[in-house]
Design a protein around this nucleic acid. Structure first.
Lengths: 211, 211, 211, 211
DNA sequence: AATGAATGAGGATTCATTCAT
DNA sequence: CATGAATGAATCCTCATTCAT
């Protein structure tokens, strides 16, 4: 068996260890508030050690945010493969999946960072916009457009429809990141996903109350 | 003529001038990234002058965020006075009003600050949660509950229904704050408000596609 | 009657009011630690007002210290007029008088200032040395020398004899300024003066124990 | 050879190097007037380096003063071991020893600091009072009391007798610290010690002039 | 003569980054 | 590779001093 010794595996995992630690600290403190030393401590090496893998704090920040991009693009792409489904089924599958991803991956934290530091790091906002948001919205509104063409979905700007679908999920994430730690009620993302899918598909009004 | 000397008129307006400038800079740079000197310059006085009105940078930050709270609570309360309307009418009135408020007041900027610095200033997150968010959500879900009791609105957790109503507006705001400056398509909040109101009330699906 | 209105008397008394306040604050905080604003407050005028009478903080400090010199030289000169007395009587009169002066005038405070800031304000140390200390020591050792010539006082360096006379009084003052405020036992300067006069004149040893 | 790297040897000596430099600067400039940068320069490192060993300027000041306490308590205790001697011998041994200690250790400088900053750092005055002054005075007046019981020493408050013994030494120290640098005559502490011991033991008056 | 708002140089402190070991 | 002592630029904050009123 090619059995890699622990310390070697460690060495190879270092950049990723550092990124993981950095994500935590950046998410907690913001870019400027994060201390390299704390990142180093959480990653299990010395302050100087971080600089063996990342030339500057900014570079580390960029790496953290960019690294969070790639896997999520993939996740989205996966979901898109299911597109041939009826639109309702797609939504009822997609929203819980988004909830699951967000619950697993610290996507909320990254989102907070991108939003919070967008003025200081516009390129990161751009990367996220171009690689994540635009793609996600594009896929969604594409699916919506097709569904509209098939007569499944009511008319209206597909992009805004996409907002209607995604917005509440986003609100749930930010709520969890921001308000739950200071005593707000817990929010259960999967529950939100399910109920919101129903709501947005069928409408809030009861049949007898519709125009 | 009751002629007030120039510098005296200045003095009274100073705290508010400084808050306005500080809001801009904090929103652009985050708390730690903001330089007191830049706030001072934009407010039209010297570095030291800021300290005549606010004892520390933190105190200034708190003042900025808190000051953004009061007027908005009022705005929300106003909207609530219209509650006796049918739920659909309420929503079709409320969402555009939210859009209008957000477009006028730099609420997006404050929101970004509260979210971004929630770990560093939990008390601000708490104030916002207690005084703004909880109140807004409470009012909304209250109205929803009543509408459910009247049979106007479908069953389901009223708080999640509130998320369904508000989430897309929030997404619009953050989009505008974060992605539009880096080249993303403009979003028109009033348009979103209108279309989303329709969507969430009636549902995305066409009549013949509903369960 | 030349009756000066109160506010006019005030005006003329201002410099002295300020010096009195400044002495307190300088004595409490040291030169660098003293705030002009606090001196102004205690003197009953505004910060800017101090600058109508003293061009800089240093000038004020110098004034405070110099002002404390003149009257004390006088006091010493007065005591010297009694020189024709036998030495023992002189000492038994002088030490309690020193105690009285020190207890009345805040000489301890000034002394602390001169000692503490002697490196920062060498000229003040020099003024004090030349005008106060040297004179006082000169007068004392002069008297001692004469008494030695008359065979009243034992041989030995007259200046050191002067130290023997004055040192314990000084220790009493510094003790009162420094240690009493932090819980040390009170010291009673007049009592010290009396007992030390006896001691230094007659010696600590009993007759049968002397060489 | 056990060869310690240069910078490691440095590291261990640093706190003490810094304290030594700080003592000089504090003694010269007072607490507020002392510049961390100058202390650093004299200790041979950079401004920031000081903060690797002391968290604040105040902490450094406290360390400097406290560090001066411990060794002196020891010195005092040593002197006490000689107590069984006749009182006259004890004094004739003690005063020169005090002179020697003061001449060697920068005790005068520390004393100046404690006195000058006693209002700003009352706890340091307290530490000095409790650990140094009280102990020293206690030992001395204890010895005096015993000597009085043996009939060696004349009656009188033993604490004031202690002042009579020590005061002139203190005056000598302050003189040297304060006035010698501005042109005053040098004082020789050992000489003062010797002559004052004689004076205080035997009295200033000649036999035929005593009561 | 007096006020007190305003200034800005100065100094303590922090922390990203470097580099000798 | 890794460490952690050291650096020094950057920033908050203070306060002596000025000056319009």
């Amino acid at each position: 068996m090619t059995d890699t010794p622990k310390w070697r595996r460690r060495k190879e995992a270092r950049p990723s260890d550092i990124c993981t630690a950095a994500l935590q600290v950046f998410a907690e403190k913001g870019f400027a508030g994060a201390r390299i030393e704390e990142i180093a401590r959480r990653a299990g090496l010395s302050k100087g050690g971080v600089y063996l893998y990342f030339p500057t704090k900014e570079a580390l920040f960029r790496a953290v945010v960019r690294d969070a991009v790639a896997p999520n693009i993939e996740a989205i792409r996966q979901s898109v493969l299911a597109t041939p489904l009826p639109f309702a089924d797609l939504v009822r599958m997609l929203l819980p999946q988004v909830a699951a991803i967000i619950t697993t991956v610290p996507l909320g934290a990254v989102l907070k960072m991108v939003v919070g530091e967008s003025r200081n790091f516009p390129e990161l906002a751009k990367v996220w916009h171009d690689d994540v948001v635009l793609k996600a919205v594009g896929i969604l509104s594409g699916a919506i457009e097709q569904a509209q063409a098939r007569g499944e979905v009511r008319p209206g700007d597909p992009r805004i429809h996409a907002f209607s679908l995604i917005g509440p999920m986003l609100l749930g994430v930010l709520w969890r990141e921001t308000f739950t730690p200071v005593g707000a009620a817990e929010v259960d993302l999967p529950t939100i996903a399910r109920q919101h899918a129903d709501t947005v598909l069928e409408g809030l009004l009861t049949a007898e109350n519709k125009g």
